[in-house]
């Protein structure tokens, strides 16, 4: 690590592309600060400039104007080895050479510190082992990349950046192509690393729902603007829903989930409790049936038995009890027409 007092400052930063002498600004005038010990999620819809900003932060493309400083030193003043010891990057995992072994990939993180032929000293080996322990992949150290799962591959790349021993880690879509369990685990791991090792970790993501529960801070890109705030705060200020202004999707802050505004074909009344009520309602809504006591074409009563559940539906004097939600909804549709 080169800087001990690290923080990243973005001052009047404009990011974008230079095309034949013209600047195509993707996000203008960014003013942000990231302090150590924080996990920051860069969120925004597709094409909002997440990758452009991330690439600019890594130094892979020049800023159009403004300045990025790391610990008060401008990014441009870092030479290559210095930058490689200050800032590491984790890209996508599906492009890795299948015949590399896990410990080999992790060891590449030490390259900014080793001599021309990459001789590893005891300290380097220690850091590599520690990085594999910290990311929970030590037992996989001799496996080939082709033999491990996508979630494990992502951990290998994170371990590699830990071995690079930088104050700052930037990750491009670390949760892409992972299942829900792995998404949570990888983000939880990043949060732990940020807090325990006092790093600045910035990752881009469009998994808003998962990010809301794991990141310390959101950098929320909306209409060429970046709003910074704790996820909870952005939810309370209803900022999340501004992302979906022109869409049928909305964020239900109470339930911490995304929903779709659906037109209902007809309404029905629903009687029941707790979790059964909630999930029955979800299923009915998805099938375009609203829950309403007025103008209801019929009623559903949820009957809880010890471990099981039944639904009793009544439409136009006809009643039937169902063990399957699917069959009931089909029955309702058949009978509301007649």
């Amino acid at each position: 690590m080169v800087n001990t007092e690290s923080h990243i400052d973005l001052k009047n930063l404009s990011v974008g592309y230079r095309l034949r002498g013209h600047n195509r600004v993707v996000i203008p005038n960014i003013n942000l600060r990231a302090a150590k010990g924080t996990l920051i999620a860069l969120v925004g819809s597709n094409g909002s400039g997440k990758s452009t900003l991330l690439r600019t932060l890594v130094g892979l493309q020049p800023a159009l104007s403004g300045e990025i400083t790391i610990g008060n030193k401008p990014l441009g003043n870092f030479n290559r080895p210095e930058l490689a010891q200050t800032l590491s990057f984790v890209g996508t995992h599906y492009d890795m050479h299948a015949m590399m072994r896990v410990h080999q990939v992790v060891s590449y993180g030490r390259y900014p510190y080793t001599n021309m032929v990459g001789t590893m000293k005891d300290y380097d080996r220690h850091i590599i082992r520690k990085a594999m322990h910290d990311t929970g992949i030590f037992h996989l150290r001799d496996a080939f990349i082709s033999e491990i799962s996508d979630g494990e591959k992502q951990r290998v790349l994170i371990a590699r950046s830990l071995a690079q021993d930088t104050d700052i880690i930037l990750l491009d879509e670390p949760t892409a192509y992972l299942d829900v369990k792995n998404k949570f685990e990888v983000l939880h791991l990043l949060g732990r690393l940020a807090h325990e090792k006092q790093k600045i970790i910035i990752f881009s993501s469009h998994d808003l729902q998962i990010v809301l529960g794991t990141a310390d801070l959101l950098w929320f890109i909306d209409r060429k603007c970046i709003i910074q705030g704790m996820p909870e705060e952005l939810v309370l200020r209803n900022k999340i829903n501004e992302l979906f202004r022109h869409s049928e999707v909305y964020f239900d802050a109470e339930e911490n989930e995304f929903k779709i505004n659906r037109k209902h074909h007809f309404d029905i009344s629903l009687e029941g409790n707790g979790i059964f009520y909630k999930w029955t309602q979800k299923a009915l809504n998805r099938m375009h049936i609203g829950i309403n006591n007025q103008d209801a074409i019929g009623s559903i009563k949820i009957v809880e038995k010890q471990k099981d559940v039944n639904w009793k539906a009544t439409i136009k004097n006809q009643s039937k009890t169902f063990e399957s939600l699917q069959e009931m909804i089909a029955w309702i549709y058949r009978h509301q027409k007649t």
Binding site: F89, D95, Y108, Y111, G118
Partner: peptide, 24 residues
Amino acid sequence: ALLNGKNLNIMLLGELYAKTTGVN
């Protein structure tokens, strides 16, 4: 070729990794 062994190794992770590990 031998003096570029390190760079060749990291090239297999992709050019982005090579660049951010300090390879010119």
